[in-house]
Design a protein around this nucleic acid. Structure first.
Lengths: 249, 249
DNA sequence: CGGCCACTTGAGCGTACTCAAAACGCGTGG
DNA sequence: CCACGCGTTTTGAGTACGCTCAAGTGGCCG
C-alpha cells in the first residue's frame, strides 16, 4: 500500500512539488500547453497573480455565477467542477488535475458556469482575466487557448454521449481506464493509483448511485480484473477492462 | 395543422429565406454574433467560401476524423452532430439550427470530433479555416469566437449533467422546453412547432430508447400537458411541463 | 398494390435504484 | 491511549423504471 500512495505524493503534499520560476520549468508546462509554442511560457508567467495560489481540501476556487476574475492552471492536486441543476441538486461534470486549465467556460458570459472545489490540498496558477485577454491579442497564444477550449468541448461531448449510451459496468470500466491514462500521461503508474474522490462523487459524475459504483467495483474485483481496497485501486487486467466497453447484448 | 407547419417554413424551403448580401443583413446575424460587435459582419462575409452552401436532407457537412477545412454558420435548416463510441454505435450530441456555429471542436486537433448531418434541406455559410484564423488576429473577433466556444462548453456541460441525473419524463420535458425556447428566440411560436428529428434521434440525444420517448410524449398528452401528432407538437401547459423538471420523490 | 419506415402500444424482463443494516476508517476529545 | 461520533463503504433484499421483444397502425413512395 505504501508504494500505491507514492504515486500520488505530489498531490498530497504540494510542498514537495518543484517550484517553477517559469512555466518552462513547471512540471505541468507541457500539459497546460501541449502544442510546441515555446514563447508561451515566458509570456504567461509574468501575468500570474502569483506563481502559486494554495487551497486546502474542500476550499472553492470559484463559485457558479460568480463574476469571472481569473483563469486557472492547476499545478498540483485535484479539483471537481460541479453544476447546479434546476431542481437544486448538484452534479459533477469533471475531475481535473495538474496540467489542466479551469474557468474557460466563464469566458462565455463573464460568469463561471460551474464551481470548482479542491478535492485535496491544491496549488494553482491564477491568471487575472484582463491580463489574460491582453495576452490573447498575440495570435499564437490566442490560437492556443482555442485549442484548449476545443479539447474541452470534445472531452465533454464524448462524456455526454457515453453517459447516455453505456451501462454501469461500461461506465465504471471507462472511468478507471480514463484515470489510468491520465496518470500514465503524467509519468505515474497506469496500474496502481489512489482515487481522489468518493464513490458518491464518482456516481454523480457517471450518473449512477454510489451503491452501484461500489457494487460494480466489487464485481470487477470478483472477476479478477482489478483489486480495490477503499480508494486504492490496482488494475490487474487492462485489456479485459477495455473489452468491457464493447457492447455485449 | 397548416399554421403549425408555417412555423417551420424557412427550414423546409430555404429558397424562401432572405438572401443576405452580408451578415449584417442576414436573418441570423444577431444569433451567430450575439454580442454587439458591429464590425464583425463586414469582416466575416468576404471570408465565406460563398455566401450560401446548400445541402439536401441527409447530406453530411463534415465527417468525424476528417481534416478540418472550414467553420460553418448555419443559415437555414437543421443539423445533428454525432459522435462514434468505442463500440461503433453512434450517438447524437447536439441539434443545431440557424444562428449556430458548427465545427468549433475541430480547432482542437485539426480534425472534426463529430460529424454533422443535415436533417432538412440546409444552407450554411462556410468559412475556410485559414481565412478564419487570419480574421482572429483581430482581438475583437478573436474574443467573439471565445465567447461562442465558452457557450458551447457550458451548453454541453449542462446536457451531460442532466442526462445522468434526470428521469425519462424530466428529460423529455426539458427537451421540449429547450426546443420551445429556441423557437421563441428566433421569433417563432413557443407553443407550436414541428420536430425536425425522429423519436429515435431524440432518444439517442437523451440516452433513451425511441419507445420510451414516444411513451413519455403520449403520457404528457394523456395528462393534457401537450398535444402530439407525429412530429407536430403543441405545448398546452408550459408551467406544468416546467414543474416536471423538479425532482419528485 | 406492396414494401418500407416511423410511430404506437402492450407484455415481460432486467438493470439500476431505494431502503436498510452493519463494518470500517478517520479525526476529535476525553 | 482508547472511546466516541461521523462519514464512507459494503452488502443485502425488494422495487420500479426503462429496456427488449413483439405486434399492429399509418404514411409515403415506387
Amino acid at each position: 500500500m505504501a508504494d500505491v500512495l507514492k504515486n500520488n505524493t505530489p498531490a498530497r503534499d504540494p510542498v514537495l512539488m518543484p517550484l517553477p520560476k517559469a512555466c518552462a520549468q513547471c512540471a505541468c508546462g507541457k500539459l497546460c500547453f501541449p502544442q510546441a509554442l515555446p514563447n508561451v511560457y515566458q509570456t504567461l508567467l509574468p501575468l500570474a497573480r502569483d506563481s502559486r495560489t494554495r487551497l486546502r481540501r474542500g476550499e472553492r476556487l470559484f463559485n457558479i455565477g460568480d463574476r469571472q476574475t481569473d483563469v486557472y492552471a492547476v499545478k498540483a492536486g485535484f479539483f471537481k467542477t460541479c453544476m447546479r441543476l434546476s431542481d437544486g441538486q448538484e452534479t459533477i461534470v469533471g475531475f481535473h488535475t495538474m496540467g489542466e486549465v479551469l474557468g474557460l467556460a466563464g469566458l462565455g458570459n463573464g460568469n463561471y458556469s460551474t464551481h470548482a472545489v479542491a478535492l485535496s490540498d491544491c496549488e494553482v496558477c491564477a491568471i487575472p482575466l484582463n491580463k489574460f485577454e491582453k495576452l490573447l491579442e498575440h495570435s499564437t497564444e490566442s490560437a492556443h487557448v482555442r485549442v484548449l477550449m476545443a479539447r474541452e468541448i470534445a472531452r465533454i461531448e464524448s462524456h455526454a454521449a457515453v453517459i447516455g449510451a453505456y451501462s454501469a459496468r461500461q461506465l465504471v470500466a471507462r472511468f478507471l481506464l480514463d484515470i489510468s491514462a491520465r496518470w500514465a500521461e503524467r509519468g505515474y503508474s497506469k496500474y496502481e493509483f489512489v482515487l481522489f474522490m468518493s464513490r458518491k462523487e464518482i456516481g454523480s459524475f457517471l450518473g449512477l448511485t454510489f451503491e452501484t459504483v461500489g457494487r460494480t467495483l466489487s464485481y470487477f474485483q470478483s472477476r479478477g480484473l482489478i483489486t480495490v481496497n477503499g480508494k486504492n485501486v490496482r488494475l490487474r487486467d487492462i485489456s479485459a477492462l477495455q473489452s468491457q466497453l464493447i457492447h455485449t447484448t
